[in-house]
Design a protein around this nucleic acid. Structure first.
Length: 244
DNA sequence: TAAGTTGTTCGGGG
DNA sequence: CCCCCGAACAACTT
């Protein structure tokens, strides 16, 4: 279910639990939950596709993968993999991967790469992209969470279309101006995605993701796996330039 | 009904 | 030691 914007939306929904006491944690996940007992939930944050629950000396990340979901004060038939309990409420996660960290999130995660954070730094992303990912195809590089934290398949497809770049173009062959435009398009579209989630219209409003033809000239899209990554890719071969 | 999917981790081989 | 790739995992929709 989730790319970065979906996780940010979940975070926003949970803000009312900030400052509340967590009475206990449960779930079949293997993470040690013994420290999460009668502790105050100090912050709820995100980093890319991770939801972060911050306590005084530790924090827990929750990642929903492809099939995960969250319910507040409701339960599914299947067991939760992780749950936080309050005196009068509960947050349940299904098919979620969790990690326990001692310390603070900022000491572990580089907020400069998170497409939905204030601290996002497009210049840092650009220079890292050119230095460390020059020989990769841009369609693959966009999925690297250490560089484009929070980008998933939909944001990848849609931002490449907006920037008119073919995903199989090597980073080193793409003019810097185009990369700058792409990096801006990623963030702009991520915020559009966030808005569209509120009306459940992400797929409807996508320009080429899940579509058969290009909205510009109604020509057929190329659809299939491209690059190294095993994800379905949508491209308009006419609009999106292959740099080489 | 079987296939497809907004994702990551792990381990083996090169 | 690093990179690459395939397998594994899981639940829900069409």
């Amino acid at each position: 279910m989730p790319e970065g914007p979906s996780i940010l939306l979940l975070k926003n929904k949970l803000q009312r639990y900030k400052g509340k006491m967590v009475t206990e944690a449960s779930g079949y996940g293997e993470m040690d939950k013994s420290a999460i007992q009668n502790v105050k939930l100090e912050e709820i944050e995100t980093f890319g596709k991770n939801l972060i629950f911050t306590f005084k000396n530790f924090f827990v990340t929750v990642h929903l993968g492809l099939f995960g979901s969250m319910l507040v004060n409701k339960r599914k038939k299947v067991n939760a993999s992780f749950a936080l309990h309050f005196s009068d409420a509960e947050i349940n996660f299904y098919v979620a991967n969790t990690h326990f960290y001692r310390g603070r999130p900022r000491d572990f995660f580089n907020y400069k790469t998170d497409i939905l954070k204030e601290e996002y730094d497009g210049e840092f992303v650009l220079s890292t992209l050119q230095e460390k990912f020059a020989d990769k195809m841009i369609g693959d590089a966009l999925m690297e969470q250490e560089l484009f934290t929070g980008v998933g398949n939909i944001i990848r497809i849609e931002s490449l279309y907006r920037a008119k770049i073919h995903p199989d173009s090597l980073v080193k062959d793409i003019p810097e101006k185009k990369l700058v435009y792409l990096i801006e398009a990623v963030v702009n579209y991520a915020y559009e995605f966030l808005d569209q989630l509120k009306t459940d219209s992400v797929k409807e409003q996508a320009l080429i993701y899940g579509k058969k033809t290009c909205p510009k000239d109604k020509k057929e899209l190329a659809i299939g796996e491209m690059g190294r990554i095993k994800r379905k890719t949508y491209v308009c071969p006419k609009c999106q330039k292959m740099y080489q």
